[in-house]
Amino acid sequence: MGWESWIVDTLKRALAYGTPLLWGTLGEIYAERAGVVNLGVEGMMILGALSAFAVAQSTGNPWLGILAAAVVGGFAALIHAFFSVTLRANQYVSGLALTIFGLGLSGLLGTSWVGISLKNPLPKATIPGLERIPILGEALFRGHSYLTYIGIVLAVVLWFILYKTRWGIAIRSVGESPSTADAMGINVFAVQYLCVIFGGVLAGGAGGVLSVEYRPAWTEGMTAGMGWIVIALTIFAAWDPLQALGGVVLFGALYHLAYRLQAWFPPEFLKLMPYAFAILVLAVAGLRKVKRGAPASLGVPYVRGQR
């Protein structure tokens, strides 16, 4: 195999593996940019995965499945928003509770769907024109899921909104200094609610990507820690949607490279690679001093009239 096809293959698989991670990370970036950490990504993803599969299987339409996953993810995030924004509860604990709850509930409700493979998973698609770019066209624009393309477009659009529009300024200022944002006439409460719910919509959708596209079936606990990797990638990407795209591809490529070594290593070691990479990625982010770019009021509940 020539080096060109090697690169194409690696990029292709990195994107395929990375699509759910990308969706989830973009969502978490928005929540955290508004100052709210949501450790419930794993829970929202698994609930999204189950609802996507159940709806896609019952209706025969995988797109309806994705929609259902997004709605369920949004509602799950609403719970977190209520506890962390309205009640100003500890955001870490509320997110953990959401994850524990989501894993439990999906296990409870999903028993009847276990072991069925999806009737009609999402088809692959090719983008005419762009696919003809040498190497990159083959790697990025041919034979991927629609959801992958949506993820890439989302990354660009969300980056534009965050840095080039008034909405983006509003979101960022809420995350940096809610009291200043409040004084500027921004509704801190509404921005935080919307961003957390939007994060949940994408996290739920990410679960849907898993169960109707990547591995079109439902298995209990199928997210297998992806929600946590999402949170690691959010930090690694320095809360920037475009860097998230890069981070996800890098992460996927690492995973894929490890996969290629399977002839030399036992399968258990390959399976633990993503988790080791997540720590590695955060250690690199630590060396890069990425944390300096963290929203200043991340994780701090906003109390009106208090500095």
Binding site: I79, R88, A97, I100, G104, L105, G107
Partner: peptide
């Protein structure tokens, strides 16, 4: 005849209500 995961649901709920009453 219910799945053991019911404990997870209950644990999640307790944690939510705990931080809720904290307020």
């Amino acid at each position: 005849q219910m799945p053991f995961q019911i404990t997870g649901v209950f644990n999640g709920l307790i944690l939510f209500f705990l931080i809720g009453v904290e307020v």
